[in-house]
């Protein structure tokens, strides 16, 4: 077993997801299946291989620093669950 219940709780916390006991058991089982499959990568020697993040040659993309129109604030706020005076409203952050 590569990942136990404590670790599932730990990564659920990192993910800001809460799980009940039944879900924890399910994910322990399923994540172990997947991680054991992924183990096969360790049979490859990659000491001298460079990691690849992007397929194409990427370089910085610059543009002129000029003012462009953006989406109006009221259109942006229309999807927010809660707003106040043109801002997103959230529960108290600092106790």
């Amino acid at each position: 077993m590569m990942i136990d219940k404590d670790e599932v709780e730990y990564i659920a916390n990192l993910s800001r997801i809460s799980l009940n006991e039944r879900e924890k058991d399910m994910f322990v089982h399923q994540l172990n299946d997947i991680l054991s499959y992924i183990e096969k990568l360790n049979t490859l020697d990659t000491k001298n291989v460079k990691p690849m993040a992007y397929i194409l040659k990427v370089s910085n993309v610059f543009r002129e620093d000029k003012l462009e129109t953006s989406i109006p604030i009221q259109d942006v706020l229309i999807n927010a669950p809660s707003t106040k005076s043109g801002f997103f409203k959230v529960p108290k952050v600092i106790e």
């Binding site: 990568l41 490859l44 291989v49 460079k50 993040a53």
Partner: peptide, 14 residues
Amino acid sequence: AYYLKASKVRNLIK
């Protein structure tokens, strides 16, 4: 062990 390893094998596949 995971992400870096996978990025390297990704290069081998390419």
